[in-house]
Amino acid sequence: MNLSVKQTLAAWLAGLGQITLLAREAAAALLTFKVAWRNLIYQVYFVGVKSQTVVLITGAFTGMVLAAQTYFQFHKVKMDTATLAVVGVSMCSELGPVLTALMVTGRVGAAIAAEIGTMRVTEQIDALRTLATHPVDYLVVPRVLAGLIALPLLTAESISLGIAGGYGVGVGLYGIDPVYSWAHMLKYTGDTDLSIGLIKALIFGGILTLVGCYKGMTCGVGAEGVGKATTEAVVAASITILISDFFLTLGLERLLNAL
C-alpha cells in the first residue's frame, strides 16, 4: 500500500472517528435537554417547511415516471393493474426516503456546512465558546434534531405525492382500472414497507445534518475552505445515504418481518 493511499485511509478513519464523537456529544446534549429551543424551531422551519417545494415536486414526478415505466412493461404481460402496487412499494420503502434525503442534502446539508463553515472562519464559533455556550448545543443539536423531525414528515409527503402522481398517470393517462389498481396497491404495500421508509428517513435526516455540521465545524480557512466544506458535505452525505440505504434495507426487512 503506497503512502498516499495510507494517508487517505487514515484521514477517512479519523474523520469517521470525529463524526462519531460529534454524534455522541450531540446525543449527550440532547439527553440532558441542552437544546437551544428557539433555534430548533427555526431549524425545523428551515429544514422542513422550506424544503416542501423541492420534495413535493421530486416525489410527484418520481411516482409519475415510475408508474409510466412500470405500465409500459406490465402492459406487455397484461398486468396493468399491478402498476400502482409497484409504485406504492417502491415509493414507501425506497424511492421516497432516498430521493427525499438526497434532495434535502443538496439544499440543507450544503447550507448547514456553508453557514457553520463561515461562522468558523469568521471566529463566530470561538465567540460562542467565549460566551460560555457549547457549539454542539447551539449549532449541532438543533440542526440534527430538526433533520430527525423533518425528514420522516417530508418523506411521508413525498410518498403520498408519488402515489398520487402514479395514480394520475396510470388511471388518468393510461386508463388502468382504478378499483383493481387501488386494491392491488393496498394488498402488496404493507405496513412494513411504510415503516422501513420512515425509519430510513429518520436515519437519513440524522446523517445529512450531522455530516453538514461536521464539515462546517472542521472547514479550512477562507472562502476556499468554506466552498470545499460545502461540496464535501453534499458528496459525503449523499454517498453515506446511498451506502447505508443498502444495509438498512437488508437489516430492516429482516428485523421488521421478524417482529
Partner: peptide, 23 residues
Amino acid sequence: DERQLLRVRRNFGMVFQGAALFD
C-alpha cells in the same frame, strides 16, 4: 474538556479582532 471550560469562561469576556458578531 469543553464543558468544564464553559464554567471557567463565565469569568471572561473576549473582543475579537474582526468583532466576530453573529451576523
